[in-house]
Amino acid sequence: MKTRILCIVGPTAVGKTELSLQLAEALSGEIVSADSMQVYRGMDIGTAKLLMNQRRGIVHHMIDVADPTEVYTVHRYAVQARKTIDEIALRGKTPIVVGGTGLYVRALTEHFDFTETRENEAFRAQLTARAEREGVQRLHEELMLRDPEAATRIHPNDLRRIIRALEVNEITGKTLHENWNQGDSPYDSVMIGLTLSRDALYQRIDARVLQMMEEGLLDEVERLRARGCRRDMASMQAIGYRQVFDFFEGLISREAMIDEIKKASRRYAKRQWSWYRNDQSVHWYDRSEDGMILEMIRDRVLQGWFESRSGSQPLGGTR
């Protein structure tokens, strides 16, 4: 019998975290983060990590599992997260996967064939050299020709992922999508998606950015720089961090930095929505109907889950 897992997806700032806490309380669950930047220690404010006193006593996993000076791959995440999910299930708890990194969620809910996507250091070095000579945009244009689907998901400035996608294509002769093994999923997964009107979501994004500034994002990046983090590292490509680096290096003003973080967050939200919008397995709920979402999820999607969780509290008691 497959392990049952619940996945909560959707664009940044839509409210996935709050819903995950409510469902964890109702389902006696533990939360497994699927955020590619929350894996890094010391990157707290810019990645909107919950403080320990905000987690309501609910155990969170796959947060702070890597140093920001190292590269954390989706393969490494999948191996660690699947081991974690198995351990949660053995404890009789419900694994609840939460996050906006679609590739991470997909690496758990589907079977990815990592065996063929070995690394080719020589080819990678060639691409890196080309990026220095011709610019990252030229490599992104090449990726658009080789693998249009991957190119639309990967930011034009995300050199690490552009190179990886081109590398996979060079080695296997297939797109990233074609490298997904269509074998049986290891889990019985239910996908819950949160959405919101564009104006409302953008307001939440803008408010979050200002909150991050007030909480000390600049000081956080200073501490990371003191630890040896450079702007070319994978971790420092996260939204917010790379813009702060631009500010510190005198490339943009403080006001322009804040504006760029807001714009980049909005573009990221669009890419997150594009990742899932054609996925027929996702059950979508409008975040504006907050008072009814939990009941609707219980009645329409998770019938029988609540009754089977010993010690879980009634759904209505989680508001």
Rank of each mutant, 00 (worst) to 15 (best):
D259E: 15
L166A: 03
A48W: 01
K263P: 00
G46P: 03
R164N: 12
A234L: 15
H61A: 10
I154Q: 04
D184H: 06
K263M: 10
H61G: 10
D206N: 10
E307K: 11
Q272P: 00
R76Q: 15
R138C: 07
G250R: 06
L315D: 01
G240M: 11
G29M: 03
E30L: 05
H75L: 12
T172C: 06
K263S: 09
N53D: 15
M213W: 12
L108M: 07
A226N: 14
G183D: 15
Q203K: 14
S235I: 05
R130F: 04
M296I: 00
N179W: 08
A81D: 04
V244F: 09
A26S: 12
Y285D: 01
E30T: 03
E170G: 00
Q211R: 13
V209T: 09
W273A: 02
R287Y: 05
P148W: 02
D184L: 11
D219Y: 09
I8K: 02
E87Q: 14
K262N: 04
S33L: 04
L21S: 08
G102S: 07
M292E: 12
L108P: 08
L145C: 01
Q303R: 13
L217M: 13
L251M: 13
R130M: 15
I96Q: 05
Y40L: 11
M37N: 13
G15M: 02
N179D: 06
L194Y: 03
R76L: 09
G250W: 09
M1S: 14
H61K: 06
Y72E: 03
G173E: 04
L50D: 01
S20M: 03
Q211W: 06
E119T: 11
I5A: 08
A122Y: 10
G304K: 07
H283G: 01
R198C: 01
I5V: 15
D147A: 09
I154V: 13
H177L: 11
V65L: 11
D259I: 00
L194H: 03
R225W: 08
A78W: 01
Y285W: 08
V282C: 06
R4V: 00
Y72H: 11
M52E: 14
R160N: 09
I297W: 01
Q303S: 10
I45N: 02
V105M: 06
S28G: 14
H75N: 12
R41G: 10
S308K: 14
R267S: 06
G240D: 11
E121I: 09
R266H: 05
Q203G: 15
G10T: 03
K262F: 02
I154G: 02
N278Q: 11
M52F: 05
A150Y: 05
E170S: 11
D147Y: 07
F248R: 09
L251T: 11
R319A: 12
R146K: 13
K263R: 14
V301D: 13
F245P: 04
I192F: 09
I297M: 03
D158S: 12
R41T: 13
I58N: 04
S28R: 14
R267L: 09
D259K: 12
L217W: 05
G29D: 02
